[in-house]
């Protein structure tokens, strides 16, 4: 579904030396997989995830989405793919606190240019109800607990019926019990709804929820 071929990401620092966040990384993620990308902090795993999630473009190398090379597609087209194809879950939840929980979950639908085959509000409410948040629809996200916020973020990632969910340290800001609940939820999405899940973490017990673990160190896939 997503393939990275010889992907490097370089940052030139102070016009002097080049820092390689990623070095000729090769990676393939197949449909319906549950993959963990594991490595210590600074290993380049976040860069890898941003490239997989089409938030960032590699300096060299090629990225294929459904066998289509994306380096030549426009910014608008990338936005469309992020909107329809990928759902993000972040460590800091990244919810917009001035919007309500319901509005946050519905937000991706307003950026979709094609006709939706569902009613945004009904779908948002049904996902939030399933996650036990039906009493919090009109609350502001910053009034919720960390676990609840992360469930709102997952609901937002699901609203557009994506093929892929990218979770960047989703349990990083949660206690271990809540962290495992979130992981159970992601596992369930992968198993029952056949959504591909890519998880970035530095914790081995979190990484082990996945069927495949990709290790990364110093920008190289090992």
């Amino acid at each position: 579904m997503i393939k990275l071929a010889n992907v490097s990401k370089e940052y030139v620092i102070d016009n002097e030396y080049t820092f390689y966040a990623l070095k000729k990384a090769n990676l393939e993620i197949k449909e319906k997989e549950f993959v963990s990308i594991m490595g210590p902090s600074g290993s380049g795993k976040s860069t890898l995830m941003h490239i997989v999630g089409l938030l960032d473009k590699p300096t060299t190398g090629k990225v294929y989405v459904d066998d289509k090379e994306i380096s030549r597609i426009s910014d608008d087209e990338l936005s469309r793919l992020r909107n329809e194809f990928v759902g993000f879950v972040f460590q800091q939840f990244n919810l917009i606190n001035k919007l309500t929980v319901l509005e946050n979950v519905m937000l991706p639908t307003i950026y979709c240019r094609k006709e939706l085959n569902f009613n945004p509000k009904e779908r948002a409410i049904s996902i939030l109800t399933r996650f036990g948040l039906d009493k919090k629809l009109n609350s502001r996200p910053n009034k919720l607990s960390g676990g609840q916020q992360q469930r709102v973020a997952i609901a937002r990632a699901l609203i557009m019926k994506p093929k892929l969910i990218l979770a960047d340290e989703p349990t990083g800001n949660l206690d271990s019990k809540t962290g495992h609940e979130i992981m159970d939820l992601l596992t369930e999405l992968n198993k029952k709804e056949r959504i591909t899940v890519v998880l970035v973490t530095h914790e081995i017990d979190i990484a082990e929820y996945a069927r495949r673990i990709i290790k990364i160190r110093d920008g190289e896939v090992v």
Partner: peptide, 16 residues
Amino acid sequence: IKEIGIRRAIGARKSD
């Protein structure tokens, strides 16, 4: 800036 980043990540175009 953060809000703009979030909106872009979930599919907002530059024009949005």
